[in-house]
Simulated scan of single mutants.
Amino acid sequence: GDDLLLYFIEKGDTCAMTLSCCVKQGRSNIRAVAESDVELLMIPVSKMEDWMGKYRSWRAFILDSYHNRMQELLETVDTLAFMNMDERLLKYLRDKAMVNHDDVIHATHQEIAADLHTSRVVVSRLLKKMEREGKIDLQRSQIKVNSL
Rank of each mutant, 00 (worst) to 15 (best):
Y7I: 03
Y7S: 02
Y7G: 03
Y7H: 10
F8I: 09
F8V: 10
I9S: 03
E10M: 07
E10T: 09
G12S: 00
D13V: 01
T14S: 14
A16G: 02
M17N: 14
L19V: 08
C22G: 14
V23E: 07
Q25I: 03
R27S: 08
R27P: 02
S28K: 07
S28E: 04
N29V: 04
N29Y: 02
I30D: 06
I30M: 03
R31H: 04
A32K: 08
A32C: 11
A32I: 13
E35Q: 15
E35G: 12
E35W: 11
S36A: 09
S36H: 00
D37I: 01
V38D: 00
E39K: 07
L41A: 03
L41R: 05
M42N: 11
M42R: 14
M42P: 03
M42D: 09
P44N: 10
P44K: 11
V45L: 10
S46M: 12
S46F: 13
M48F: 10
E49M: 14
E49P: 02
E49Q: 14
D50C: 14
W51H: 04
G53R: 14
K54M: 15
K54I: 07
R56N: 13
R56D: 13
W58Q: 05
W58F: 11
R59A: 11
F61T: 06
F61A: 05
F61W: 04
F61D: 07
I62R: 00
I62A: 01
L63N: 10
D64T: 13
D64L: 12
D64R: 11
D64Q: 14
D64P: 05
Y66W: 05
Y66P: 01
Y66A: 12
Y66G: 03
Y66Q: 06
